[in-house]
């Protein structure tokens, strides 16, 4: 049956596009950025200053960019976790069926709002608000960025955590309730521990989304490449750096190459979060 075989081959080729794409992504990031590693050399990346356009001394230190990304990501995650997890618990365990049917799509809509629109909203409404509350010169800082990013991570965390909570077998709950435990005790001592790996996977995926997000941070974190732990300082993330500078850079220059290196580092971060999340997700997926 040559026809069957031809079709199977065609389908297989289509499926391998994903594999090829991933390979090409790594390949082309290295192709465009790789020369930087030999000259000016990998050592110049380990520097505390990112001043790619300078008449005196161009420096391509990644530390401020990584620090910026991490600060914003951790803040956003810290904000998103209670909202995301409590939201998931509410939707999965407490809400009435009809309430759930309205809440779930509503949360999904949030996931669908384009990031540039959220950034725009932040620019006009949130940043002035943050500025007034803390009495700052400008509301464009890590905190404003983190608040918006948390908002973007929440749907991911809710959707996947809710799945995890829902897939906790009924028999666990019944066993606990039958022993006289209250619903709340059952939730905390039985359901949540059983769903924990799924929830961790959800959080890791949410973090992946946050660290890779571009437009919101570009529009609202102020974009000053500095190493700081203060939420009220302006920071510049890896994503924002690429987006802001790629448009004005000379093709093939050291700066151009450095931006691709930033892309590689960023990709490695998200890749690690993804693998981490998948390890947990798989474990929880196997149970059901």
């Amino acid at each position: 049956m040559w026809k069957e075989k031809a079709i199977k081959f065609g389908l297989m080729s289509s499926a391998s596009v994903s594999v090829i794409s991933v390979a090409l992504i790594f390949l082309f990031l290295f192709k465009e950025g790789g020369d930087f590693l030999s000259s000016p050399g990998i050592g110049s990346l380990f520097d505390t200053r990112w001043t790619p356009v300078s008449f005196v001394n161009e420096r391509f230190g990644l530390y401020p960019l990584i620090a910026g990304s991490l600060l914003v990501t951790f803040l956003a995650t810290a904000i998103a976790i209670p909202f995301g997890v409590l939201g998931a618990v509410y939707i999965a365990e407490i809400a009435k069926p009809r309430e759930r049917e309205i809440l779930k799509p509503f949360i999904e809509i949030l996931a669908g709002i384009p990031s540039v629109v959220i950034g725009f909203f932040g620019l006009i409404i949130l940043a002035p608000f943050v500025k007034n509350v803390f009495g700052l010169y400008s509301g464009l800082n890590a905190l404003s960025g983190a608040l918006l990013l948390a908002l973007m991570a929440i749907p991911t965390i809710i959707t996947i955590s809710e799945d995890a909570i829902k897939s906790c077998p009924k028999s666990y709950r019944q066993a606990s309730l039958a022993m006289g435990a209250s619903r709340l005790q059952t939730l905390w001592r039985v359901v949540m521990p059983a769903s924990l790996s799924g929830i961790i996977a959800a959080i890791a995926l949410g973090m992946g989304r946050v660290i890779g997000e571009t437009m919101v941070v570009l529009m609202i974190t102020g974009n000053a490449p500095q190493i700081t732990a203060s939420p009220l300082e302006s920071v510049r993330t890896m994503t924002a750096t690429i987006a802001a500078e790629m448009g004005e850079v000379a093709f093939g220059s050291e700066h151009y190459q450095a931006l691709f290196i930033v892309g590689i580092v960023l990709l490695l971060f998200t890749f690690a979060l993804n693998i981490f999340s998948r390890l947990f997700y798989r474990r929880y997926g196997n149970r059901s």
Binding site: S21, G212, T214, F260, G263, L266, N274
Partner: peptide
């Protein structure tokens, strides 16, 4: 899974390169 996790700006870099 990897592709789903690639940040959109990295897709931009890739599209630019390729």
């Amino acid at each position: 899974v990897t592709l789903a996790g690639v940040p959109s700006i990295v897709f931009g870099l890739f599209g630019l390169g390729l």
